[in-house]
Simulated scan of single mutants.
Amino acid sequence: MEAAGGEESPEVRGAAAAAEPSFSGSRATSAKPVWASLEEATQMKTEGNAFYREKNIRSAIGRYHRALLVLRGLDSEVLASVKGFGPEIPALTTEQEALLRNTQVDCYNNLAACLLQRQSVDYARVREYSLRVLQWRPGDVKALYRAGVATLELGDAETAKQYLTQACREQPNDANVRKHLQRAEEKLNRELQKEKAMYREMFSSSLKSSSGEGINQTNRAGEGV
């Protein structure tokens, strides 16, 4: 996989902004019934899925981003931080709350999948979106796998191994999960061997230094009359 780099595209920045509190999002969503907003977000997600299947990654990212913007205006966690600004919206029913959260989870999961398809992968974003999924759905195998891959590419093999090990427990026959888990273990082993070699060199240098001091002391003792 390619290393992260390059300028972040507008649609990816928009997806990140969808997770931040916004007064305008609350006002815009409150102008229409809750179910209408939820249906709009679900439709955006469905269109995003269609674009993803067609390998139109840019358009897919745009649809998931728009879905998250709509849902932001209904999210109780977001609205709690901006309470008192803009009109209030009715509390969501249990069914509405479940649909909102499931749609958010799907969009973040799919955004992470989209980013992994780009020529220049922003692994930090992949990890961020995957961790958002795991916050709401801790055992999600796809999010665990993508968080593991992204974390490994970002250089943290130990944490990556934890994500990938959990994903492997859930799907032991998944070849991709096993492959990246093996990569994490091999990287950890290389780091361990490198650390051992460094300590051996330090120990060897210390012995040579001590030996040299002993010889000098012996020579000085033989110089006496």
Score class of each variant (00 low, 15 high):
residue 112 A to K: 03
residue 167 A to E: 07
residue 163 Y to H: 13
residue 28 A to N: 07
residue 148 G to Q: 06
residue 48 G to K: 05
residue 186 E to G: 00
residue 136 W to H: 11
residue 60 A to V: 04
residue 60 A to T: 05
residue 72 R to T: 00
residue 168 C to D: 12
residue 46 T to G: 06
residue 197 A to M: 10
residue 165 T to R: 12
residue 9 S to I: 04
residue 41 A to W: 04
residue 187 K to T: 12
residue 195 E to P: 02
residue 84 G to Y: 00
residue 121 V to Y: 00
residue 178 R to C: 00
residue 72 R to K: 09
residue 52 Y to F: 14
residue 164 L to Y: 01
residue 225 V to A: 10
residue 82 V to Q: 01
residue 216 N to L: 15
residue 217 Q to R: 15
residue 121 V to E: 00
residue 54 E to Y: 07
residue 213 E to H: 12
residue 192 L to V: 08
residue 1 M to Q: 10
residue 113 A to G: 09
residue 151 T to L: 06
residue 39 E to S: 12
residue 31 A to L: 11
residue 172 P to E: 09
residue 18 A to G: 14
residue 7 E to R: 09
residue 102 N to F: 01
residue 119 Q to Y: 06
residue 215 I to G: 02
residue 153 E to H: 11
residue 81 S to P: 02
residue 32 K to A: 09
residue 115 L to T: 03
residue 103 T to E: 03
residue 142 K to I: 08
residue 83 K to A: 02
residue 95 E to G: 05
residue 195 E to T: 12
residue 153 E to I: 06
residue 178 R to D: 03
residue 147 A to K: 05
residue 65 H to G: 06
residue 109 N to Q: 10
residue 166 Q to R: 14
residue 27 R to C: 08
residue 11 E to D: 07
residue 209 S to I: 10
residue 45 K to Q: 13
residue 204 S to G: 12
residue 204 S to N: 14
residue 65 H to P: 04
residue 165 T to W: 09
residue 104 Q to S: 08
residue 33 P to V: 02
residue 174 D to L: 05
residue 47 E to N: 11
residue 80 A to D: 07
residue 44 M to F: 15
residue 135 Q to H: 12
residue 152 L to E: 04
residue 197 A to F: 09
residue 188 L to N: 03
residue 136 W to I: 06
residue 86 G to A: 03
residue 215 I to W: 09
residue 213 E to K: 14
residue 46 T to P: 00
residue 41 A to V: 02
residue 118 R to N: 07
residue 71 L to N: 00
residue 100 L to W: 02
residue 20 E to I: 06
residue 137 R to A: 11
residue 50 A to K: 13
residue 99 L to P: 01
residue 171 Q to R: 12
residue 99 L to V: 09
residue 129 Y to Q: 07
residue 92 L to I: 01
residue 20 E to L: 14
residue 198 M to V: 12
residue 187 K to A: 12
residue 44 M to E: 15
residue 68 L to D: 04
residue 2 E to R: 09
residue 105 V to W: 05
residue 75 D to C: 03
residue 206 S to E: 15
residue 84 G to A: 01
residue 98 A to Y: 06
residue 72 R to Y: 00
residue 177 V to T: 10
residue 145 Y to L: 10
residue 144 L to D: 05
residue 75 D to I: 00
residue 216 N to H: 13
residue 70 V to N: 00
residue 82 V to P: 00
residue 110 N to S: 12
residue 59 S to G: 09
residue 221 A to Q: 14
residue 91 A to D: 05
residue 150 A to L: 07
residue 48 G to H: 03
residue 84 G to P: 02
residue 106 D to C: 04
residue 34 V to P: 03
residue 179 K to H: 08
residue 214 G to M: 14
residue 172 P to W: 08
residue 96 Q to W: 01
residue 139 G to Y: 03
